[in-house]
Design a protein around this nucleic acid. Structure first.
Length: 881
DNA sequence: GCAATCACG
DNA sequence: ACGTACGTGATTGCT
């Protein structure tokens, strides 16, 4: 018996189902009819035919080679409605969980890929079953190749083999191409011979076998009119035949075994079916929980030399982790060191008496021939680095791996990850440590529970490696993971260890000044209000302004009156209390967040050690907490004073480099907008140039208002602007805003096209990508809620821009870090602020560092537009920015 | 634990 | 989940 290979035309079935099943949506308005119909069919045919291998094929929206022959090919066909196109992404996502491979290729249609696969399978003695709603597939029927054709919607199928085709049409399957060549196909805009319909075409081919032979015998054709039509349209007939022929040589690596049926990921399927409200399919999923046999044994060791010996002798990769108390490792210390050598059962647990003991393990961590694995590796690297140990590559971190697979998660916890990817039930952090005030320390946990917790942690770390790395490889994120995100961990840990020197005395003095002013302002505000109240409470403030003082209400929030700066700005002049409140807010913010907040976090070394989070921002940016050093004031002179507290150490300087207009440059690159690319090439002020084009004035005559308006539009575009928001931002009417945007998009036509295309791509794929293939899924694109979908569309536009810029600076950081190390320089990278890098450089190295920083940043990646970096040097961040 | 506000790119 | 711009984090008040 031959093996059975089933090829399913996903595009055709989803299309059929979409029109056959009406109005099937989830309660959130996600259209699911196409996907539902497909799955119904899928389960039915798989049950009935029990194939050994399965592949689903899709059309791809790019123009196919057929358009080169005939421009009008499928010309009048309307674009699929968004309710349908949005379902392709959902279906592919489900296929992934079903572990069913799918194929699609630019320039080819689903039937071409199906045909190519079927012929190849035929050579390898498979019995192939093609499942589709498209009658054209019948031309592929052959020995060992059958077609299942849906009939009336998708409820029934007809099975065609060689005999049944011949019976029905009295022709060989391959001759159906000739029939189509003569009769054409209005749905694909294939012309055929005008005036020749199915009846005539069938008759002619039955009689003469092929189009070629029809023309060879043209004089024998009975019927003058028919003969004339044929003669006049000979080229058209041949062209139509060519267009109607399924292409059997799609260039692709074919390995039919790749499509072998695999066990689906039932956990994922259940989740996805629940989201889509496919209850009937949930019932099909196996219900019994798979019992997991624990494959580790934990050992508490008293003497570190025991495990040390083992690790030194072992040539195998190992998982490890340093466990600490509390939620922030920087303000804590490592308590427990655990190892698990890959493939071995034992999980070694060693309770550190002092973190200095880590030095005993230096040789192991600095061995560059074995891979070290961890879940939450940055904390480990931080502790090692803090103790003079440089964890050498190769190393891998499963937290980061999981983040790359889906950056939208709120947290990356090992118990949830283990459940999702390995279907293993772990104790949660909360179960072990408790929560709130009762939260326990590691030392308070009973030994057996601790052993099981750490044992599972290590064993799961080991097992996740294969599962997660496979997904990363499949998605072509190898480079992003291994050459960007993983090396970056060490760079971030190093910045955390280095910290930023802060002048506490200066901050205190500044704080005293601000506090004095706050006291004065409070008094005056109470006077203005005629009562004392808590100015910090928006509720109380609202009552004072809008009830007591009867000022006009500008805007409301969910809970009451809005009192934000925008509202207060509009109320300026109507009461002297307003300006005082604005001033109070400004000064209060500076003292609480930036003076008191920062002073609290200055370490014993006089430096602030922020924590950089690599797995928070969905776009790929890094974020900074405890404290956030990425939002230190700069926009107002008063706020900027805070930056005088951030200083270079003794005998050092700050070298501050920032990318000029990186997001607009990335946009110009992604959109391939000739006009904007050219403007950047000319090195002109891009906002001024934009103003000159959009408002149609000479470059030299652009007013500063024009320029700042153009600047707002440039920024707005990057965020997926709307006329409403722009009008608010620029204080102009909505109509004017609409005109600005229109003019803008007429100037930058490439950007206009890109904006439309990227949304379509997002809908089709279910995600968008950065230049490094960083992925963000956007389920919001499927919402029928106008606002949510609008949000999805803006995100689809903005994420590739913001995310690619993040990719670029990350690459630069790694190269800068490595170069400083390679050249044995003492200067260190200490901070990144999205488009800005700060190096604390020793005075003798300033020049060299300046040069290498600029060189590396400007050449981190090669885009269609040059990257430009501005550098400033100073003793404090105030001077260097 | 959430909402409002405001700091940054 | 968002009455209309993307991405973050800290502080304060209040339930």
């Amino acid at each position: 018996m031959n093996k059975k290979f089933m090829i399913i035309d996903g595009s055709s079935l989803i299309f059929r189902a979409f029109y056959a099943i009406r109005n099937l949506t989830t309660k959130d308005g996600i259209f699911t009819n196409g996907v539902y119909g497909f799955l119904n069919m899928y389960y039915r045919v798989v049950d009935e035919y029990k194939p050994d291998n399965i592949c689903v094929v899709f059309d791809k929206s790019a123009p196919t080679f057929r358009h080169e022959d005939y421009e009008a090919y499928k010309g009048h066909r309307d674009k699929a409605p968004s309710e349908l196109s949005s379902q392709f992404g959902i279906l592919k996502d489900i296929l992934n969980s079903l572990n069913v491979k799918f194929e699609e290729q630019d320039g080819y249609e689903a039937d071409d890929i199906a045909g190519t696969l079927a012929k190849k399978a035929q050579e390898e003695n498979y019995d192939t079953i093609l499942v589709t709603g498209d009658k054209d597939y019948l031309q592929l029927v052959d020995e060992n190749i059958k077609v299942l054709l849906t009939r009336r919607g998708i409820t029934d199928v007809d099975e065609y083999n060689e005999e049944s085709v011949e019976e029905k049409y009295e022709l060989k399957p391959i001759q159906l191409i000739d029939v189509k060549g003569l009769m054409g196909d209005p749905s694909d805009n294939i012309p055929g011979v005008p005036g020749v319909g199915e009846k005539t075409a069938l008759k002619l081919i039955r009689e003469y076998d092929s189009i070629e032979n029809v023309y060879a015998n043209i004089d024998n054709i009975s019927g003058k009119a028919l003969k004339k039509k044929l003669e006049e349209n000979e080229t058209l007939a041949y062209l139509s035949k060519k267009l109607g022929t399924i292409f059997l040589e799609v260039p692709m690596d074919i390995d039919i075994e790749k499509y072998k049926i695999e066990e689906p990921n039932y956990e994922e399927l259940k989740e996805k079916y629940e989201k889509l409200e496919f209850n009937s399919f949930i019932k099909k999923l196996p219900t019994e929980e798979i019992e997991y046999e624990e494959d580790f044994e934990y050992v508490f060791i008293k003497d570190s030399s025991k495990i040390l010996d083992k690790l030194k002798k072992s040539k195998k990769d190992f998982a490890f982790h340093l466990f600490y108390n509390g939620s922030n490792y920087i303000h804590s210390k490592p308590e427990i060191l655990s190892f698990k050598i890959i493939g071995e059962e034992k999980v070694y647990i060693y309770i550190l008496k002092d973190e200095k003991e880590l030095l005993d393990f230096k040789e192991i961590f600095e061995n560059n021939s074995i891979t070290k694995l961890s879940y939450d590796l940055k904390s480990d690297i931080y502790y090692l680095l803090r103790n003079g140990i440089d964890l050498k590559v190769p190393y891998e971190d499963l937290t980061v791996a999981e983040y790359l697979i889906d950056p939208s998660k709120n947290s990356y916890d090992i118990d949830k990850t283990a459940k999702l990817y390995l279907n293993r039930d772990l104790f949660s952090n909360e179960e072990i440590f408790g929560k709130g005030k009762k939260k326990k320390n590691l030392a308070d946990i009973e030994e057996e529970q601790l052993g099981n917790y750490i044992g599972m942690y290590m064993s799961v770390t080991e097992d996740l490696r294969k599962t997660l790395t496979e997904i990363i490889e499949e998605r072509q994120m190898h480079d992003l993971y291994f050459n960007v995100e993983l090396p970056l961990i060490k760079v971030l840990a190093s910045m955390e260890v280095e910290g930023f020197e802060v002048d506490a005395g200066y901050l205190t003095d500044l704080g005293d000044k601000f506090n004095e002013e706050i006291l004065e302002l409070e008094e005056k505000i109470y006077e203005d209000a005629g009562m004392e109240f808590n100015i910090n409470s928006p509720k109380q403030l609202g009552e004072v302004l809008f009830d007591k003082l009867q000022l006009p209400v500008i805007k409301k929030t969910k809970t009451g009156y809005s009192t934000d700066a925008e509202v207060l700005d509009k109320l300026k002049g109507s009461h002297k209390i307003i300006e005082r409140i604005l001033r109070y807010r400004t000064v209060k913010k500076l003292t609480t967040t930036y003076i008191d907040g920062l002073i609290k976090l200055i370490g014993e070394d006089g430096r602030i050690h922020s924590t950089f989070n690599q797995t928070i921002a969905v776009t790929g940016r890094i974020s900074s907490i405890d404290p956030n050093l990425q939002n230190i004031p700069v926009k107002t002179e008063e706020g900027r004073l805070i930056r005088k507290a951030f200083v270079a150490g003794e005998g050092k300087k700050l070298v501050d480099a920032d990318y000029s207009q990186i997001e607009l440059r990335v946009l110009a690159h992604l959109a391939n907008d000739e006009v904007m690319l050219q403007f950047f090439k000319e090195g002109l002020d891009i906002h001024r140039k934009t103003a000159s084009e959009v408002f149609n004035v000479d470059f030299d005559k652009v007013t500063s208002l024009d320029r700042s308006n153009a600047k707002a539009v440039n920024f707005g575009i990057v965020y997926g602007i709307g006329d409403y928001s722009l009008s608010q931002d620029l204080n102009i009417t909505r109509k004017e805003a609409r005109e600005y945007i229109e003019n803008y998009l007429n100037t930058y036509k490439g950007i206009k096209k890109y904006m439309e295309e990227i949304v379509e791509v997002g809908k089709e794929q279910g995600y968008v990508e950065t230049i490094m293939h960083r992925r963000r899924y956007i389920p919001e694109l499927n919402s029928k809620n106008f606002n949510i979908r609008g949000f999805g569309e803006r995100v689809a536009l903005n994420t590739p821009i913001q995310g690619s810029a993040a990719d670029i600076i990350k690459i630069a950081m790694i190269e800068v870090y490595n170069k400083l190390k390679e050249k044995n320089l003492k200067s260190k990278l200490i901070l990144q602020v999205h488009d800005e890098l700060i190096i604390e450089a020793t005075e003798d190295e300033v020049e060299e560092v300046t040069n290498l920083l600029k060189e590396i940043m400007e050449n981190a990646v090669k885009l269609k537009v040059d990257l430009k970096v501005d550098i400033n040097i100073g003793d404090s961040w105030y001077e260097s920015k």
